[in-house]
Design a binder for these strands. Structure first.
Lengths: 403, 403
DNA sequence: TCTTGTTTGTTCAGCCATTGAACTTATAGG
DNA sequence: CCTATAAGTTCAATGGCTGAACAAACAAGA
């Protein structure tokens, strides 16, 4: 889901003005920690009460926000009526294709998860077509569940652990996919009529983290079987020229290091990927369970601790380069890294403080993912609602056009 | 020079609308390769001829653009009068503090360099105060020269080979500076009354390249005594949290590599910095002349070619990481690298094609700087005019307020 | 209970920038 | 000299925001 194209080179007319303020007011409503009154929105946004009133009316008519029952709040004066994101209204569908499961979830405009379902299915044993069919079935159930809650699905985003360009999945190494086209609309069941997008799993996870934590700029690194990443700059996801930004798994740690399946040598995945950690710890590879690694670390097993130290060091080298390049103050560890953070952190922070030139004035903060393994799924769903929040006018236009 | 703060969270009123379109029209005037008429601007921008007319009037009154003498162009119908950026109008002052010289230049709104002066001065032998004084003298001469051309200085930016934060130069290793405060206004002579900014040299060079080449997104790497870099994303300079983004010189090439003066080990500068290249080639270090290196390469001297191959390899490893992370399609080599590009390129491109995962679908383009060693100086000056082009309304407001 | 003071939300005239159409100006070509 | 074409200007209409006035809803005190 590419971010809304910049309007820098668009002409601005009266209507664009309204469009902007529509989004501005809606953002205040969704971002506030307590339902704001029209007057509070006006004070916070800099618009006048009159303008806010007409804008709120338009948003209510469009089903994007709703008035709360007038509750008597403390204080003198006429009490304001709280404005909340509509509990009934558009819903975003997030879907995830991962190595050994499919998942689907739905969020409303507030970002709350209203539906969530998971189905174990090993993609390596099936064709992409079977995957799409199973996903369509899950999505159909989600659409039904969401409708029962009074919500209207407004679009869907599929998270895939690979490189996506346009309508093609270029490569998804851990699924064993190459040049897989997206399913045709007619194969998608109830998703047929919804705007659909596909994006990289780690990129969407970064988006999910951004909403969950409120962080403005950070580097998200997710360690699962592969290592993915996403970059959030000033609140916006940064996608790069083709939407492939964040691929930190194949940053070079040692030019003479071990061969990597990507064709290069000494990539980060060869040191800090799950398979590499397990191999170094002397644990059986192939199993996608994390428990033995965590238990080994808890028991202070020397080979496990050494393996995690080695992984943390490599991660530190790679992240130092990224931080030097981007001048980003925070790193978020997601996926399996979130559970392993306590044992990765010492080596990681040691390398960061040594290799980031600006570390002495501005140390890099390392934190665990807030959403854990749900980050990509929720991020995908939120990408849909975020698009509505960013440009409510467009949504309202399509809505009224349909009616 | 921080980019214009985003207006995402600002309320929009009628005036902002005009402000936006003012910038839009001005951009069309400066970006066109041939002076456009009002009608052409209207067609290209999507505004109506009526609106463009009133906006052009406002820009002419503010001295930002001018009408050309009506020249008879081919074709039937009333000929349009060309609109050009005002040759007389605001000028941007660029200044550069480098290891062994100071420089000053001035550009007009078209980006043309109207004045340029260089003075040899080795900063390592003098105090920062002496540097500032010498720079102020150069700036005074530039202000006088610019005034003689009918231009009005509108601001200045100083390029420094170091890390800048707020009003302090945190560290400039090659100048031997640490925690050097900016000069006080009263020590600045004619610069006293102008808005002044300081920024990293490589960052500004990237900005200069952006204007000179029209590239929308690229990574700029400048190899001089140190290695600096700048990142341009979608036409905008990316500064990072503190404006320190682009520091590629201390990306790790080999975690076990030679010690670096930054406190880390195996940094890119230890392989591809000028001193490192000279040492590997068996040439005397310390001299800041490039000629013997270029001549050695032309003569196909084996140690020189080997040293450049080694540097290109290291550069390739570092840039591969950056491209994987940012998904940027173009790399621009500046500073001394621009002259050495023919000998760096083979190893550099070899590493890029091997280590960038997306290289097989989208190869990375490597090109030499268009501005060469003037990039930072011109970029600094253009930062001033760019700020005016980005927000002409603000400039017009200050201008009329002063009058 | 009544009055006063305070804050919310709405209404309305005024303002401002853009639009679209009509109009004027300037050229080429027959 | 007349016609066709395109550039630039003028002007009433439109849409959206503002500010001020006003009505509504509540607390506190008399």
């Amino acid at each position: 889901m590419p971010p809304r194209p910049p309007r820098r080179d668009d002409p601005v007319r009266q209507r664009s003005l309204r469009d902007h303020n529509l989004a501005l007011v809606l953002r205040h409503v969704t971002a506030a920690n307590r339902p704001p009154s029209r007057a509070e929105i006006a004070a916070a946004s800099g618009l006048t009460r009159a303008t806010v009133s007409t804008i709120v009316d338009e948003l209510i008519a469009g089903g994007l926000v709703a008035e709360l029952e007038p509750v008597s709040r403390s204080g003198v004066g006429r009490p304001g009526t709280g404005i909340v994101p509509a509990g009934t209204g558009p819903a975003g569908l997030g879907m995830e294709v991962n190595v050994d499961y499919l998942a689907v979830c739905a969020v409303d405009l507030t970002g709350a998860v209203r539906h969530r379902q998971l189905r174990r299915l090993d993609q390596r044993e099936h064709s992409p077509a079977q995957t799409w069919q199973a996903l369509a079935e899950l999505a159909d159930q989600a659409i039904a569940a969401v409708a029962a809650l009074g919500l209207t699905p407004a679009g869907g985003v599929i998270a895939v652990p690979g490189l996506v360009e346009g309508d093609t999945i270029r490569i998804a190494p851990n699924l064993g996919w190459q040049q897989v086209p997206l399913p045709r609309p007619e194969d998608l069941g109830g998703l047929r009529d919804l705007p659909l997008d596909v994006a990289n799993e780690a990129t969407l996870a970064a988006l999910g983290e951004r909403h969950a934590t409120g962080l403005r700029s950070f580097l998200y690194v997710s360690g699962e079987i592969g290592i993915g990443g996403g970059i959030v700059l000033d609140g916006e996801l940064f996608g790069g020229s083709h939407g492939w930004a964040g691929e930190i798994g194949h940053v070079t740690i040692d030019p003479q290091g071990p061969d990597c399946h990507c064709g290069s040598r000494g990539c980060l995945e060869q040191y800090a990927g799950e398979e590499a950690i397990r191999a170094a710890a002397g644990l059986p590879t192939g199993a996608a369970v994390l428990t033995d690694l965590v238990e080994g670390a808890r028991r202070e097993s020397t080979p496990v601790l050494d393996a995690l130290d080695r992984a943390g060091t490599a991660l530190g080298v790679a992240l130092s380069g990224a931080v030097n390049l981007l001048d980003i103050a925070t790193v978020v560890l997601g996926g399996h890294y979130a559970e392993l953070i306590d044992w990765l952190r010492p080596a990681l922070e040691r390398e960061l403080s040594r290799r980031v030139i600006t570390a002495r004035w501005s140390p890099v903060k390392v934190r665990a993912s807030a959403l854990g393994s749900d980050a990509a799924l929720v991020g995908a769903a939120r990408a849909v609602t975020q698009a509505i929040l960013d440009d409510p006018a467009r949504f309202l236009a399509t809505r009224t056009a349909a009616a």
